[in-house]
């Protein structure tokens, strides 16, 4: 188990983060050159100001009409995204790992707050998953990827939570946690999770198109 642990935390971490970064670089370059050759208006109409306006507007809670019309979903998705963003970066244990390898240390969340965020993340992930299964409309449009990715996020949070509190079989859970997290990181550039980068880029394009050509707000 110790060998597996040191492999996961050492070489495997390097591999997964390299795939993440290289994958994103390739994808962004692909987007750029494809736009340049086939969709020149994407670059021609792109306007940083309008793009920024659109991204900010959509990140303000309940500003966009679309957010206001799906209140339960909006609350769940916002909480889910906040916890899935804060926990990996600011959890004490993760910061310690970074300090051990690179000697960098920064602000951490207190243990109670991280626990709260984890539980909130778990509940909202569960809601998003159950919504896909129960709601006939959402089930109609869901694909395997949608179910799988939300499950993976849930499991990463769950194994992390269990291993942190060391309820049972600490070593098994911490290894599973690291393995699943690395799987998730690898999957980011090649699945729909690439919306981490491409949601702002596409939102920015539509924002510029609406600001520049259509003279209306796009929210």
């Amino acid at each position: 188990m110790n060998i597996i642990y040191s492999f996961l935390i050492g070489p495997m971490a390097w591999i997964s983060f390299s795939i993440l970064i290289i994958g994103f670089i390739i994808k962004i370059l692909y987007f750029f050159f494809l736009s340049k050759n086939k969709d020149p208006e994407v670059l021609r109409y792109y306007h940083i100001g309008y793009a920024f306006r659109s991204i900010v507007a959509w990140n303000i809670l309940f500003l966009a009409k679309s957010w206001r019309q799906n209140i339960p979903f909006t609350i769940a998705t916002i909480l889910f995204h906040i916890s899935i963003f804060l926990i990996p970066i600011f959890l004490t244990a993760h910061v310690i790992l970074i300090r051990m390898s690179w000697g960098i240390s920064y602000f951490t969340l207190s243990e109670t707050i991280s626990d709260i965020f984890t539980v909130v993340g778990l509940i909202s992930a569960a809601y998003l998953f159950i919504r896909r299964i129960i709601d006939k409309k959402i089930r109609y449009i869901s694909t395997f990827q949608d179910y799988f990715l939300i499950c993976l996020c849930f499991l990463v949070l769950f194994t992390g939570f269990v291993s942190y509190h060391q309820f049972i079989n600490y070593k098994f859970f911490i290894c599973t946690h690291i393995l699943l997290s690395e799987l998730l990181i690898i999957l980011i550039p090649i699945t729909k999770l690439s919306h981490i980068i491409f949601a702002p880029i596409l939102r920015g394009y539509i924002g510029s198109e609406f600001g520049r050509i259509r003279n209306v707000y796009d929210w």
Binding site: L34, N70, F73, I138, I141, K192, S194, F198, L202
Partner: peptide
């Protein structure tokens, strides 16, 4: 390409 690969089927 990117519209199709970015839709997360949220139903909004």
């Amino acid at each position: 390409k990117f519209y199709l690969s970015s839709c997360i089927n949220c139903g909004m």
